[in-house]
Structures are given as C-alpha cells and as structure tokens.
Design a protein around this nucleic acid. Structure first.
Lengths: 275, 275
DNA sequence: CTAATAGTGTCTATTAGACAGTATGTT
DNA sequence: AACATACTGTCTAATAGACACTATTAG
C-alpha cells in the first residue's frame, strides 16, 4: 500500500487497510481514593480520619477471588476518559468527579489472558457525597502506606481482610528521583495494581503541596482542623497548626457557620475560596 | 463464557476467547527535546541557546507533507516503552536516553484512518551526543513558546519553514489549575501533536524546578553560565546569577578545568554531582 | 583600554518552623 | 473544673530577590 501514490486524502482513506498493524485490547483501571471518618469512642476527641481506596473482588479467572481496582475494557469508539467515567459511575453512581490520568501500563505480560494495555486514572471523592450503596462485590480499604529510600510497604484493611504488598524501588536516574517499581510481595491484589495504587498516592502527595487538589475530597463546609487532618492522613505526618493555617489561608473563606457539639471550643466552618 | 464455571486458571486460559473485547492499534509518539547553540557573530558574546524539538515530515496520507513527532505502531508483544526506545533509536541512533511517559491520548477521532490510541513520551538529549546525522525527512525546530492565563502560542522554526499553532486553555477545575487544551490554530502540525508538545514543555518546566532533570540535556562538563542559559531558555525568562548559583550549588561539583578563549574572564567547568 | 561575562558579598523581604499562650465549648 | 481542640502572637531560622561590586580575559 505504501507503494501506491494517492492524489487525495479521501482516496487514501477509502483504500486504507486497518489490519496493517497489530491490534490489542485496552482497559482502564480506576484508583478511587477518599478520606473517611472513624469514630474514636471518646466524645471529646475528633474523629479519626483514614485514607482509603475502593477495591472490588474478582469473581472469575484470572486472579479469581483476589481484589483489584475497578476497571473495564474500552470500546472501539469510546474515549479513554469516558470509559473511566463509565466505570466510576458503575461503582459509585457518582458523576462530575475529579479524574486524572495516571499512567499507561504496557508490559506485554501484565495480563495472563492476552495482551492488554491499561491506562489508569485516579478519582478523588468526598465520601459524604456517596449516597448510594457501593456494589456488593466492592469494599473500601483503609490504607497504611510507608515509604523510605529503598521500598514502599502498603497494608490495606477493610475490617475483615488484609491485603499487604511491598515494592522495591530501583533508581532510574538520580537526576529526577524516578524509580522503577518491582512488586516483590503481594498477598492478594490482582494484576499490576499495586503499582497503580503506589503511583497514584505518590502523585496525590505531591499535588497536595502545590495545588488545591485536596478540596476535591472535602465537603462544601469544613473546619481548618478537619482540613489539616486530611493533609496529615495523606502525607502520613503531623503538621503544625500555625504554619498550616498560614499556608491554607489564601485558599479558603470563612463562613458565618460554626461546628459545635464536639466537647470543646466550636470551630469556624470554611469553604473553598470561589475566586 | 462468563456462564461456565472453571476449576482452575489453566483451564480458564485454555478456553479464553480473546475476541470478546474490542481491539485497536496503539502508537507511541516521541517528543525529543534539546537545547542547541547558535553563534552570535560577536566574538565576546556567549552563544545564544535555543530550545528545540525534532520533527519529521510525513510522506503519505493522512497529513501528507505536514510535520509530526516521530512515532510508530507498537507490536503485539512489545512493551510500550520499548517501542518508544525503538523509535528514538531510529531517528537519532541514541540509546540510554532520558525517556518519560507523558500522556495517553484516546480521542476516537484523533486519527482519520481508524481508532488509534497514542501514548506519548518525552526524551531529553544533549545535542553534542548526536554524532550521526538525523534522517533526511527529519529536522530540528527552534521553539518559541508563550503562555498566559487563557492560551498558549507556539512558533516552531527550522530556518526554512515555520509551524505556528495556538491552544485555548479551558479551566477544568480551579482547584488544580488543570486545563483542557483546544487547538484552535495550526498551520502544519499533524494529528494532536500540538497538545503533546505543549504538555511535554509544561512538564519539563515544572520538573526543572523540583528535580535535576536538566542534567540530561547537558554535556559532562559545563559552566554555570551555560547551565543558567539552559534554564532561561526552557523557562522563557531571565534569572539572577547569585540566586541561581545558590540553588544549583548543591547539585554540581567544581572541576579543575576552565573554559577559556571566550573574550572575557574564563569560567570554571562543573559536572553533575555524583553522590 | 574596552566589552563582556565570571563570580562574590550583603542587605532586605518573605516564608517556614517552633512553641507558648489564650479562648471557649461539652460533660 | 477538666479536657480537648480552636486560634493567635511572636521569636527565630532559612530562603529568595535585588543590586552593587570585584575579577579576568581576548582583542
């Protein structure tokens, strides 16, 4: 075909043989992250916040009975991001949610069935918006994330089951602190989804510092203490209140409302600044 | 198939019908960026640095005679990144080059021939390493990049031809300063490659500030003045030398060598710090 | 000598970290 | 009253921006 001379694009397209190149399937996997409240028992104490991810249990091979990220195959005429939105709606019945493309995984051996390339997305939700029940094969897992120079260890816990995986970090080039991730321990998370979870959490941690991304996980009105808790639970470290308030000050507006009934001084409710 | 109960993964895989889901082609497009020296005519003045991108001219439909990023279809058993490396080697004969995945474009209409999803990569090279000639259908274009709140304008220039395109920025959500890009002016760049160029340059600008990525575009030995010029040409703004030197100080080591013969005080050659 | 870049010293303004102290609700 | 968090004031340390000054070479 390359030999033939075409005089116009129309002529070329009419003649085009789309079987010239290899074809394969594409899926999208969605990392749905949220922060939840857990009661502490002590009436005075603030509720404990937990960073969490939504997983579904596979009911067929491959990886039968293992947990995985919600996902699905894209259709021949469907935009990638639309496919991600479709999966998100199926699992949570939520729309107009923060959705960001993470990474496209293209290892030919990543799916034992056949060649499948997967584009992963990260969705951030405020759990209060989640009115509908999640599907019965889905479950929220709290995230315990620890990282050092050499490896990342993650424990996921939904109250009944634990999932534990470990990833070795191999420096790609020192100039950028980029690492290749090698999953060397994994109790029950399917496919290469440990990598998706880890790259999403890393991205979120970074963006927390230089964007206002956090407000996608917050309700309309919140106290600065709650906002600080969300930062702390995602970053995995404690922050000092005065410094935190200085940094956040320009991004929020005070309202007339107060949160009371907490066993201590009421706190002003803020909202994300509109302008 | 979903109806049948399988007792083992082997049994399941043996029976698996890979035609169950839609299949399509995937390409990789590579944004190869570099910084080049241009002589100024004045023996005293430093050579002028230009930020540049490698494009190839298409010799067939679609987009016949337009310029585009080097790219190619991935093979059924080829890793995505390996495909990018293959294309990069074809065009520049370079290997072991900094390569970073940018974004996967999945608009069903992005290729008039058929459904093609494209994963774009960014490669950064030091032009001094480019010993071999580039292919005769390829050419380096200098980049003139201007951006404000509402749009991005880019002019590419290889000395013979100009390519000009403009992109309208539509705010996705104010919380993260993410934009949808709408290409509303484009003289002769094929496919959605204006978006690839723009997202790569934005990424590079950001990473310049918080990583050591710049050293992938530098020769082994360089002066701090040259390094500053590279920052300036990529960021599109002038920097103050004392501040620049303070920031860069921890990343480079002084050598015993000097760069002389420039019509002014010689300057110490530095190298990227090893440890 | 001159033009041009190399390289340093220092003042100021801004920002981040730390901690102490005051305020005010619920039980 | 006691407890727990809300919120503020202020000292200090670190960092960034600006500019002036000295150094050194080829021609």
């Amino acid at each position: 075909m390359d030999g033939k001379i075409y005089r116009s694009e129309e002529e070329f397209l009419k003649d085009y043989d789309s079987s010239l190149y290899d074809k394969l399937s594409i899926t999208t996997d969605i990392l749905i992250l949220s922060v939840s409240n857990e009661e502490t028992g002590n009436y005075r104490k603030l509720s404990d916040k937990k960073f969490s991810v939504l997983l579904v249990k596979r009911d067929n091979y491959p990886f039968k009975d293992k947990w995985c990220l919600p996902g699905g195959f894209i259709k021949i005429d469907e935009d990638l991001e639309d496919a991600a939105k479709r999966v998100l709606k199926n699992e949570t019945n939520l729309q107009n949610i923060y959705l960001e493309q993470l990474f496209t995984f293209g290892d030919p051996k990543r799916d034992p069935r056949m060649r499948v390339v997967s584009t992963s997305y990260m969705a951030l939700i405020d759990k209060n918006k989640l009115n509908e029940k999640i599907p019965k094969n889905a479950s929220w897992f709290n995230i315990d994330f620890t990282e050092d120079e050499k490896r990342i260890n993650v424990i996921l816990d939904n109250g009944y089951e634990f999932i534990k995986f470990g990833i070795k970090k191999i420096l790609r080039e020192k100039s950028t602190d980029r690492y290749d991730y090698i999953v060397d321990e994994n109790t029950s998370l399917a496919f290469d989804h440990p990598k998706v979870i880890v790259s999403g959490i890393s991205r979120l941690k970074n963006k927390l510092e230089y964007t206002d991304i956090v407000f996608n996980m917050m309700p309309k009105y919140f106290t600065l203490g709650e906002l600080q808790q969300v930062y702390e639970v995602i970053l995995g470290k404690k922050l000092l209140a005065p410094a935190f308030r200085r940094i956040i000050a320009g991004k929020v507006s005070k309202t007339e409302k107060y949160k009371t009934g907490e066993g201590h001084r009421p706190s002003v409710l803020y909202e994300y600044k509109k302008y």
